[in-house]
Simulated scan of single mutants.
Amino acid sequence: MTDDTFLNGIADALAALPTVEGVALGGSRAQGTAAEGSDWDLAVYYRGAFDPEHLRAVGWEGEVSAVGGWGGGVFNGGAWLTIGGRRVDVHYRDLDVVEAEIARARRGEFDVEPLMFHLAGIPTYLVVAELALGRTLRGEVPAVDEFPDALRRSASARWSQMAELTLAYAAANHAPRGMVTQCVGSIAVAACQFAHAVLAAEGTWTTNDKRLLHAARLQEIDGVIAAADHGTLADVVAQAGTLARARLQSATAHIADGIDVA
């Protein structure tokens, strides 16, 4: 079965579910960066109530969560499936919530929510990023193009502030006590926070942690963490901060005088 035949069959089945108004392809498959064996990320955009039992009734192998089963918030559940031997993730997207987050993003407003597999949590504008980076397969979904200027300013400032506080706490509390795990964990979280700050300043959408540091060109922090040992924890925390601040400064240099580059 070709990829197109495979995808069209799934899109048709998802579009036929009650209350679903649109189906979109996301992730590496939508962006043309998929590797062999990459999974397929799809989202169902529904209006009103969505009943996962209708998705279960399609008969695909895998786990189908309740609405809100992945912690609630904007990322409110979905399914991990195997269809025709291929891995498929289906995400539930409430159109009322998505439209509200689009409006908030344009005003520079967002929240940060905890979500498994995302070290620093996710910004609620993640659902807006999905629309900007995805491809509509069936029906209609909201259109999103550029990263809002107001969000570039607010998100870069907020994420960088969180990163600075994360490192400061590690330097003041974990490093003096030789707490290696806590220090390394704090650096990892702060690196992700700095990465979000960099990408926001540059007006670059991101939807997950898989290549977050690489997208922000902060992968050098891998070397900082690899060099960590009990005797130099304070230095390691400081080195990570210095590296990340320099990258953020270059990303935000144009913001002070107005945003005119992507």
Rank of each mutant, 00 (worst) to 15 (best):
W80D: 14
L151W: 03
A35H: 14
A195D: 06
R107Y: 06
W40Y: 13
G27Q: 10
T232G: 11
H254R: 00
S28W: 10
S156T: 05
V237P: 00
A155G: 02
A244V: 03
Y45A: 01
G9H: 11
T33H: 13
A132Y: 09
E220A: 14
T232Y: 08
V141A: 06
C183D: 02
A49N: 12
W80M: 11
D94F: 05
A172W: 06
S65P: 09
H54T: 12
R217H: 15
T136V: 15
L14E: 04
A197M: 07
Y125P: 10
A120R: 09
Q239W: 09
L137N: 07
V67Q: 02
D39H: 04
T33C: 09
A100V: 09
A105W: 10
R153D: 03
H254K: 00
A105F: 11
R135C: 09
A103L: 11
Y169A: 14
A129D: 10
Y125V: 12
E53R: 12
L243Q: 07
A200V: 04
A34F: 11
G68Q: 09
M179T: 04
G69F: 10
S65L: 12
V141M: 07
S154L: 03
A195L: 05
R247M: 01
G77K: 07
A163W: 01
Q249V: 07
L131C: 10
Q239E: 15
G77R: 09
A244F: 01
A197R: 04
T242R: 10
V98L: 09
L167G: 00
A35D: 15
A244C: 15
M179K: 13
A103Y: 05
W205T: 08
A49S: 14
R47W: 11
R152G: 00
E99P: 08
N208C: 12
C192I: 01
A253N: 06
D96M: 08
H118S: 13
A120D: 14
G9V: 01
Q219C: 11
D12Q: 13
A16V: 08
Y46C: 04
I122L: 13
A175P: 03
P18N: 04
R245H: 12
Q219S: 15
Q219R: 14
L115D: 06
H214D: 15
T124P: 06
I102F: 08
A228C: 06
L212N: 09
V237L: 01
M162W: 13
E146Q: 13
V74S: 07
R93P: 12
I102E: 08
H54C: 06
W70F: 13
A105Q: 10
D235R: 14
L233P: 04
V144P: 02
Y45N: 02
Q182P: 10
A103W: 02
G139N: 03
L131K: 09
S65G: 12
A200M: 08
L167C: 00
V184E: 09
A170T: 04
E146W: 06
R104T: 05
P142D: 07
N8L: 11
D149T: 08
I83K: 03
T252P: 00
C192A: 15
A175H: 00
P148D: 01
G258H: 01
D41T: 03
E36G: 14
D145S: 15
